[in-house]
């Protein structure tokens, strides 16, 4: 071998701004910040609950604030992006073989969306929302 091998220049920062595909990838990865932040909110809820009625009631008051509303709406957008992007790759992550062929991806993805709907409705129903 002679000469230098060609190495495509990939900038260390901002490489994902080059293509919509990379940006969707990064949007998917960034959802972790919001999932993590929401897990911390759940943790704080538990802490206040363990502290007693007064502390927990104050936490509920904080949940009712406009800041909380904005936070929840932003988290909701990213959580929905996480859910849909996670389910959409399930045929790749766990292909299911049926006889000679593989089960069509749409069935695997569809089953996840159906189960998601059932889980969500059940959760909200059991929590007394409706």
């Amino acid at each position: 071998m002679t000469g230098k091998p060609y190495i495509r220049d990939v900038p260390r920062f901002g490489w994902f701004l080059r293509q919509p595909r990379y940006m969707r990838y990064m949007a998917r990865e960034v959802t972790c910040l919001f999932i993590g932040a929401y897990a911390v909110v759940l943790l704080v809820a538990l802490q206040r609950l363990a502290e007693g009625r007064q502390a927990y009631e104050a936490f509920l008051q904080a949940l009712a604030s406009p800041v909380s509303m904005v936070f929840h709406l932003v988290v909701l957008v990213f959580a929905l992006y996480h859910t849909t992007s996670w389910f959409n790759v399930t045929p790749k992550a766990m292909p299911i073989q049926a006889g000679e062929d593989f089960l069509p991806g749409a069935i695997i993805v569809g089953a996840h969306y159906a189960a998601w709907l059932i889980v969500s409705v059940a959760l909200l129903f059991l929590a007394g929302v409706f």
Partner: peptide
Amino acid sequence: TAFVIPALVLLTLL
């Protein structure tokens, strides 16, 4: 998280 977080967020948004 894909299954339960959206519904939980709705719950604590209420």
